[in-house]
Each structure stands twice: as C-alpha cells, then as structure tokens.
Amino acid sequence: MAVLQAQGLYKSYGQVKALDDVNIEIEDSELLAVIGPSGSGKTTLLRSIAGFVQLDSGKIFIKSKDITDLPPEKRNVAMFFQNYALWPHMTVFENVAYGLKIRRYDKKAIREKVEWALDFLDIKSLAERKPNQLSGGQQQRVALARAIVVQPDVLLLDEPLSNLDAKIRMRIRFELKALQKKLQIATLYVTHDQEEALSIADRIAVMHNGKVLQIGTPQQVYKEPVNLFVADFIGVNSIVRIKPLDKDIVKVGNLEFQPQQGVLHLVIRAEEARVLPAKEHVTLKEGDLKLEGIIMGKLYLGSKHRYEIKIHGIEEILFINSEEAFKINEQIQIIIPKDSFFVYWQ
C-alpha cells in the first residue's frame, strides 16, 4: 500500500513549469530519492507535499486520504530543512518537544518521547544546549530528531547533507539510510548528487524541467536509462555525438547503427570502459563496443589516471579513467561492455 501518492501535479511560476504532470508513489518504509539538476523542481515537489506550495492542479494522498487542500499543519508530514531551521530561543529539548506540545501530549509522554528521539540519534547529552552551541552535524541530528519524534507518515528531506563536508557526508549517508530502515518511515529524499541517490535509495526518480523522466530502482535507472538526459545525468559519462552523412549506416568502432532522425548520441559509462594497448588481443562479447584511438593527454588521479582520448573517425574527445599507465600518443583500444553504453537519436 502506497503511503504517499502524488497524481498529476502541476505548478508554474510565470513561464517556468516547476512541476509538469508529476506522478509519484512512495511505499511503506521506502526511501525514494528525487534527483535532478538545479531548477528541475525537486524542492517545489517537496514543498507541495508539505503544503507550502499552492498547486495549479493535481492531487496528493497520504494513506489514501486526500490532503491536497489541507494546510501544512494538518498534514502529518515532517520536513527536514536544508538550514535545519532550529529555533534559537529554545533548547535542544524544547526544539524536539515542540511538535509534541502542539499535539497536546502530557508532560510525561513528551519527556519520554523526546528522550527516546535524542537517544536514538545519540545526542542525549546536548538536551539543555541552545542550537548556537552545537556543531553543524549536531544541529542536523537535532533537526532530524525534531522531525521523527512526531511519528510522521512521511519524512521529507531536502538536500540534508549539502551543508556537510565530503568526508562526513559519506558517513552520514549510511547512518541516515540505517536510521530510515530502523524507523520504517516512508521517506522522500531530495538531492542533486546522483552518487548519493544511487547509494541509499530504494528507488530513484529523475526530474528535469518539472517532469519526472524515470522512476526505478538504482539498477534500473543506471542500467536502463529511458532517454539521453537520464543516461547522462546518472553515473560518470563521456558522450559522443555523430551526425550521419546522407542515409548511410553509421559506423562507430566495431558496431553499425541504422540511421534515424537527428544526431546519434553515444553515452559511455566511463567507469565501466576498459582501456587497453592497441595490440593486445581481446575477445569481444556479442554487442560489446570496441573503439580505437590515441592518448592525447592524461591527468594523475592517485590510484588511476584520467585519459583524454581521440577516437579515430570521431571528432569529440573522450575522457576515461584507467588504472593502467599509457604514454601520450600511444595507440590504444577501448572496450565497453554491452550494457555500459547507450545510443540515442535526438
């Protein structure tokens, strides 16, 4: 049973379509990540579920109840704000207790629940501090405690990790995931970091210009992107564009493609491609792509190199990482497995 259903959401700001026929569902205790470039409508989607955006049309259901016209305070969805939005005049305890006080729990129940939440997030010792006496990471935990303590039907997270530095982000990412699974709370997680989404989501929704282009498991979105945008947005890629001459068959490396309308876009998952010396013999599997080229430049990246590669017969330069060492101007071949490149005509 879906906890949250959003059906046909539309919202425009003047000419800008922030939401353009958005349909999503979140299952019980599922974590749905919404990703997309800046301005694709992620925050607008989240805020419309929380009730802070007046939709042009569409319906939102929580546990089958239509909440489209309810004010924010009647929705029982908890939002986590990017800047945490902890109230500076209240202690950590009071911040976390706020939602419970509003819900008219008695003193004892409030104390128990707040202590449970603080314990859960490992910040019990901070209860009497004010938010300005906390580090960024601690504030984040308080904000989370404040959101989960009211036992919301849906948890909404808007780029929760964007204020933290890269190292901590990696760690907290998994903590968040573990926490969400332990609480079994349906969660909508907005991020523009595709790697973050791939690593923690049960399913991913890719947004662009207010539209949801694809929803699926991380594997589906990564392995079977529905269009060029999704293919390019997910993963680390190199793209080659080829304009067919006349109505000839288009040859790329060892493969041939029937010409269609527009330009051929070849999206290559740079993480999956293998660079080998030109002379080395390889047996290709059916459908694998082999390109031949020459090393134009290289960047040292620690455990590997990033190579700038010119492919014979193609103007664009590819960027591919490899652990093996090649010299500039060395002739090489690139092997790309069948499910690691995608062809689109556009």
Binding site: P71, V77, M79, Y98
Partner: peptide, 15 residues
Amino acid sequence: LDSSYIEAARNLGAS
C-alpha cells in the same frame, strides 16, 4: 525572519 523557522513550526502542526 527566515521563512524556514515559520515553516518548520507549521510543519510540526502549529497554527
């Protein structure tokens, strides 16, 4: 006053 402070309160059920 940053709107997020107000929205956070409404989000938690405050009129």
